Simulated assay, not measured.
Amino acid sequence: MEWLFRLLEPDKRQVIYARASFFALLMQHVLVVGIASLLAVIIGVGAAIAVTRPAGRDFLPLVSQLASIGQTFPPVAVLALAVPVLGFGTLPIIVALLLYGLLPIVRNTLAGIGGIEPEMREAARAMGITPGQILRQVELPLAAPVILAGIRTSVTINIATAALGATVGASNLGDPIISGIVNGNTAYIVQGALLIGLLALTVDSAFERLVRQRQLTPAHG
C-alpha cells in the first residue's frame, strides 16, 4: 500500500514505517494491554466482590473513590510520575493502563452484583448453598454480562491509550505515531492510528459477541 501513503507524503523519501515490523509492534501492543487488563480485572473484580460481602461493605465508598481517582489522572501524568521510579520501558505504561482501566471494571462489577434480585440469594440460601457457592454459581453467572461490558470498555480504551507508551521507550503501535510527529511524516501517523483503530474494533467486536452469548445463555447453579 505504499502508493496510497505516497499520496499523503509525496515529497518524503520513505512513507512506510520500517524501523520495526508492524507484526512485532502489534504483538508488543497486545502484550502490554493484555497484562494491564488482566491485572485490572483481577484487582477490580476482586475488590468489587470484596466490598459487596457483609464484612467489606464499609469499604465500598473507599474502593469506588480510589477507582475514580485512577481515571481522573491523565495517563501522561501517571507516566511522568512513574518513569523516575520505574525507569523507561514497558512497566510505566502497564501501571498507567492498570490505573486507567480500573473504574469501568469496578463500577460494572458493583452494578452487576448489586442488580441481582435479593430473592435469588434467599432461594439459594434456602437450598443450603454456602456463600462461596452462591457467589460462584448464582451471582457471578448472573452478573457476567454487565461485568464483561465493563471489561470491554476498559480494554478498548486501553488499546488506544497504550500508544503513549512509545513516549517512554515502550515499543508498540505508538512508535509510528510518535516517529511521524517528530519527523513531520503524516503517513507514519496514519499507519499507527489505523492499526490501533483496527485492533480496538476487533477486540470490541469480540467482546460484543461474548457479552451477547452470555446474555442468551441461561445461568445454571
Rank of each mutant, 00 (worst) to 15 (best):
P145I: 07
E139S: 02
S171C: 08
I147Q: 08
A162K: 11
V155D: 11
E119N: 12
P131N: 03
I157Q: 14
L102C: 07
A170D: 06
G114L: 08
I113A: 11
R121P: 00
L148C: 12
P118R: 08
G115T: 03
V168L: 09
G115D: 07
Y100E: 12
A163W: 01
A170N: 07
L102N: 06
V138I: 15
A149L: 09
M127A: 14
T161D: 10
V138L: 08
R152F: 05
T167G: 11
G165C: 12
G114T: 00
I113Q: 07
A163G: 13
Q137G: 15
A166C: 06
E122H: 07
T153V: 13
N108W: 03
L110V: 01
R125G: 02
I159L: 15
Q133M: 14
A170E: 12
V138M: 00
R125A: 13
A162F: 04
A123W: 02
A123C: 12
R136M: 14
G132A: 10
Q137D: 15
A144P: 01
L173F: 12
A124F: 01
T109F: 03
R107K: 09
I116S: 06
A163Y: 03
G101T: 04
Q137L: 15
G169M: 13
P145F: 05
A123R: 02
L103W: 00
M120S: 07
Y100D: 13
E122K: 07
R125M: 14
T156D: 10
G150C: 09
A143E: 08
G165Y: 06
T153G: 12
A111T: 06
P118G: 10
L99S: 08
L110N: 04
A123L: 14
L103P: 00
E122C: 04
E122R: 12
L135V: 05
A144N: 05
Q133Y: 00
T130W: 03
L164A: 06
Q133H: 06
A160W: 04
P141D: 14
V138G: 01
V168Y: 04
T109M: 11
T167N: 12
G128H: 11
P118L: 10
A111F: 03
A160N: 13
V138H: 00
V155G: 12
V106T: 05
R121M: 13
R107L: 13
L103N: 12
L142R: 08
A160D: 02
N172A: 15
G165W: 04
R125D: 09
A162V: 15
A149P: 00
G174Q: 07
G114K: 00
A111E: 10
R152Y: 08
G165K: 08
Q137C: 13
R125S: 10
S154T: 00
N158E: 01
V138D: 00
A123K: 08
L142K: 01
L173N: 14
I159Q: 07
L135I: 09
P104Q: 08
T130R: 15
M127G: 10
A124P: 04
Q137A: 14
L103S: 05
L110T: 00
E139C: 01
G128W: 04
I113S: 05
E122V: 04
A163N: 05
G115Y: 02
L98F: 06
A170I: 07
A149T: 14
S171K: 13
V146T: 14
I134R: 13
A111C: 01
G165P: 13
G165R: 08
P104W: 02
E119M: 14
N158Y: 03
A124G: 05
N108C: 10
I147E: 09
L110F: 03
G128A: 14
P104E: 10
L164S: 03
E117G: 10
